[in-house]
Simulated assay, not measured.
Amino acid sequence: MARTKEFDPDAALRRALDLFWERGYEATSMADLVERLGIARASIYGTFGGKHELYLKALERYLRTTDPGVAERLSQPGPALPAVRALIERYAEESAGDRERRGCMVVNAAVELAPRDAEAARLVEASWSFLEAALTVALTRARNQGELAPGKDPRALARLVLVILQGMRVLGRAPADPGRVRDAARAAQALFD
Score class of each variant (00 low, 15 high):
residue 129 S to A: 15
residue 141 R to Q: 07
residue 131 L to H: 07
residue 63 L to C: 14
residue 34 V to L: 10
residue 87 L to R: 00
residue 188 A to Q: 02
residue 28 T to K: 09
residue 28 T to G: 11
residue 62 Y to I: 00
residue 63 L to D: 09
residue 189 Q to Y: 09
residue 90 R to H: 14
residue 61 R to I: 06
residue 98 D to K: 00
residue 80 A to G: 03
residue 104 C to H: 08
residue 44 I to F: 13
residue 149 A to W: 09
residue 52 H to I: 01
residue 16 A to N: 04
residue 189 Q to L: 03
residue 118 A to G: 09
residue 72 E to Q: 08
residue 162 L to A: 08
residue 119 E to C: 07
residue 148 L to C: 00
residue 45 Y to I: 01
residue 17 L to A: 11
residue 85 R to A: 15
residue 161 V to P: 09
residue 79 P to N: 09
residue 127 S to A: 12
residue 129 S to H: 14
residue 156 A to R: 05
residue 162 L to V: 07
residue 2 A to L: 15
residue 174 A to R: 04
residue 106 V to H: 12
residue 101 R to S: 01
residue 101 R to L: 12
residue 109 A to H: 02
residue 116 R to Y: 14
residue 55 Y to C: 01
residue 23 R to I: 10
residue 36 R to M: 13
residue 109 A to I: 07
residue 126 A to S: 07
residue 16 A to I: 00
residue 160 L to W: 08
residue 37 L to A: 08
residue 186 R to P: 10
residue 146 G to M: 02
residue 11 A to N: 07
residue 19 L to V: 04
residue 71 A to P: 01
residue 116 R to H: 15
residue 98 D to N: 06
residue 93 E to S: 04
residue 97 G to P: 07
residue 134 A to E: 09
residue 47 T to S: 12
residue 123 L to W: 10
residue 182 R to N: 06
residue 20 F to H: 01
residue 32 D to G: 03
residue 3 R to C: 06
residue 133 A to N: 14
residue 18 D to Y: 13
residue 178 P to K: 05
residue 52 H to P: 08
residue 19 L to A: 11
residue 24 G to S: 02
residue 33 L to E: 12
residue 90 R to A: 15
residue 95 S to H: 06
residue 88 I to A: 06
residue 191 L to F: 04
residue 90 R to M: 08
residue 29 S to R: 03
residue 52 H to A: 10
residue 186 R to G: 06
residue 120 A to H: 04
residue 3 R to N: 13
residue 79 P to Q: 09
residue 72 E to I: 05
residue 81 L to I: 04
residue 28 T to Q: 11
residue 187 A to T: 06
residue 123 L to A: 11
residue 97 G to S: 02
residue 163 V to Q: 11
residue 192 F to L: 03
residue 2 A to Y: 15
residue 94 E to T: 07
residue 131 L to M: 15
residue 158 A to G: 05
residue 38 G to T: 10
residue 183 D to Q: 08
residue 189 Q to G: 11
residue 65 T to C: 07
residue 73 R to P: 13
residue 46 G to K: 02
residue 117 D to Y: 12
residue 104 C to N: 13
residue 41 R to D: 08
residue 99 R to F: 13
residue 128 W to F: 15
residue 85 R to N: 13
residue 171 L to F: 02
residue 96 A to D: 04
residue 125 E to F: 14
residue 173 R to L: 15
residue 105 M to W: 02
residue 38 G to A: 12
residue 189 Q to V: 03
residue 123 L to F: 08
residue 46 G to H: 07
